[in-house]
Design a protein around this nucleic acid. Sequence first.
DNA 1: AGGCAAATAT
DNA 2: GATATTTGCC
Length: 531
Amino acid sequence: MSGNDQDHANPNPDLENNAKTEFPEGLRVLAVDDNVVCLKLIVTLLIKCRYKGWNTNYGVNEVEKVACGCGLQMAFVTATTKPTEALEMLRKNKESYDLVITDVEMLDMDGFQLLQTIGIEMDVPVIMISANDDTESVMKGVRHGALDYLVKPVRIEELKNIWQHVVRKNLLEQAKSGTGKVTMDQNSMSSKRQRDKEKEKEEETKAQSDEELSAPKKHRLVWSKELHNKFVDALEQLGGGSKAVPKKILEVMNVPGLSRENVASHLQKFRNLLKKDSKNPEMNLESENNIDPSQPNRHISDLTTLPTNNLGLNNIGDPGMAALFGSQNQTFSDYLANRRQVHQNSLLLPHVADQVRPNVQNLVFGNFPPNPISTWNSFPRPELNGMRLHSYVPPSFSAGQTDPSTMPVGLVPYSRPPGTFNLVQMLGDGSTQLSQISQPCPLAMLGPSSSQGQNERRNLVNFNGRGETGGFAFEIRGQITDESSRNGQFVQNQPSENTERERNGNYNCSSPDDDLSAMVRQFSSNGPPRL
DNA sequence: AGGCAAATAT
DNA sequence: GATATTTGCC
């Protein structure tokens, strides 16, 4: 992205002056997203970047207004919720925008078409914001004229650099029209920028320690099968009751990178699920077999980042307890045993495998078939039919791991055999008002799935009609680096040192409007912009 | 912390 | 629009 112009030696007007020359009005961005929060984030980050000319009166209300498609213009960040609107705006005001930022999720078939129109025909720089694993969309976007893409959650460093695309474009234009001088200026700008890189970094660090306003959002943790298994194992180990509290569970799970909050959240969901389930214990079996086999799996690209483990491979829908229990006459211990058996036979990560404790169940079910496949494959796995796993697996990424039949699987307590062990009680805290839980049992929601839209990239089982699991997801997403995955670590946040800080007072794009307004104020008085 | 529930993200 | 996950609050 930075290209080669940094090699042009040119002692020159400093970055700021150039910036002023180039962007007297600041960077004019047209953001395309249906998510107001994202727009706020962009705005905030841009403020944080101190792009020149930021209109400090352009508060969040305005952003929202714009985001809703009501008001437009008058700001350096204009938002629209639809690519069509964006195109329209661009056509009306060709010269009004320096670049367009769009969420790839906004780009359906038509969206890409529009992208092409904007990026290529209209020659407006387009930058996509994409989920980290959305390789296909990114490539598609690039093929349709996008210059670059930012990975969610967008980092300030990236936003800081987007202006280069504008400069580059101008460079080309000026070169064409034979305007040499500005070209040199621009070159120097980039050059200077390169040299300032380190300096900026310092500033950045400093700024972060100041406010942490632009700390990127955390990646969402997806509870993989293994992770969930470990979770349940931990519950068992703790014997439920008052001991099964997030902190303890976390301890027992012993998963690097996992936070207490993560566990607490999962525990909450788990409990809710059990409660829900205990309310309609019967409606599981039937729905179990209604999983739509045509729904592709998602996040396949993550497979490539999980070379030695199967964390990313657990994209298969859990048959649920119903499928395993069959007659639903077994006990919870049976469930546990079954679950453990499957668990045991999974291709666990070394460190995960280490977690598997020998215990009574292990002894009882000690002689597992050597091949895990036979263990669970005998259960109905309708969701494995078809190509749930193939749609998004570039051949080169498959690495022989796309065969669903080799996917290890564990069991999730979607249901509980009636009249047996009550995990709800076991888990204690029966304080939740059951009456508040009105959502249907996940298993009851199994059904044909057709939604492919924005969930296309998700490697989740479709227990419902929209590409989500009704219960637990089966994959770790986010920043799983080769390194971290190799170590079997679940890296949820930036693998940075400031995890703790991020966890606390960082900017959260869900901040109340006032926060953003405050930020606007703050940054508006924060000295000259650097662009 | 722990447990909820509201807020967000997908 | 339904869920999954994160955040905020008590």
